[in-house]
């Protein structure tokens, strides 16, 4: 074995593979198909969305489930892109618009789940929590009515249409959506939304 090869296997960085493998195995154990953390753009949404569709189609899942998972994924990622408080905007050509957050898709006991997490302004947490609690209490028929009602209304101030996106997520989920907040500072909270399909 050459000196170089030995170095590659153990030399100084020998723990990296163990650490990364451990990290990956931990994710696999949790049923995670993929997880993305960092700055998300519409281009990343497209690329991850394509990979997601291919992956769940391969698992011979019926079309209905593929479409539902995909729809929940798109709405969650677009929520991060539009509402994350951690964002970079630049008027370059083409314009740069990146928002930070985390998106995870996995399966557990034969059901898919989609989780998103991102930082929001702490002052928005109560409004968002209130909206989501309201959705949790609705059955599928009530959600269908509510979605329609919101479509007829002009969008809420500053919502960029996001309230309809949350209803779409709740409609495609097979049980009430879960959400939580972790207060980070006086200014910011971390918001998590999980939907089983």
């Amino acid at each position: 074995m050459t000196e170089l090869a030995t170095q590659r296997e153990t030399g100084g960085n020998g723990l990296i593979a163990e650490e990364v493998l451990g990290f990956q195995r931990n994710m696999t154990r949790r049923g995670i198909i993929f997880s993305f953390t960092g700055y998300i753009s519409e281009g990343i949404l497209k690329a991850l969305g394509d990979a997601l569709r291919q992956k769940i189609r391969l698992e011979s899942t019926d079309n209905k489930t593929v479409n539902r998972v995909f729809s929940v994924f798109v709405e969650q990622v677009q929520n991060i892109i539009r509402y994350s408080a951690e964002r970079i905007e630049h008027d370059a050509e083409p314009p740069v618009e990146l928002s930070s957050g985390m998106i995870t898709v996995g399966s557990e006991k034969g059901r898919f789940f989609v989780i998103c997490g991102n930082i929001i302004a702490r002052e928005d947490a109560d409004t968002l929590g209130g909206r989501l609690s309201e959705l949790q209490g609705m059955d599928s028929e009530a959600l269908r009515r509510f979605y329609k009602e919101k479509l007829r209304e002009p969008p809420d101030e500053g919502s960029k249409g996001g309230s309809i996106g949350l209803i779409e997520i709740a409609r495609r989920a097979s049980e009430p959506i879960q959400f939580d907040f972790e207060h980070l500072s006086d200014e910011y909270s971390y918001f998590v939304l999980k939907a089983y399909i």
Partner: peptide, 12 residues
Amino acid sequence: IYFNSSTAKALM
């Protein structure tokens, strides 16, 4: 075949 919630609003 598929549209997101912002498209639903536009269709409306």
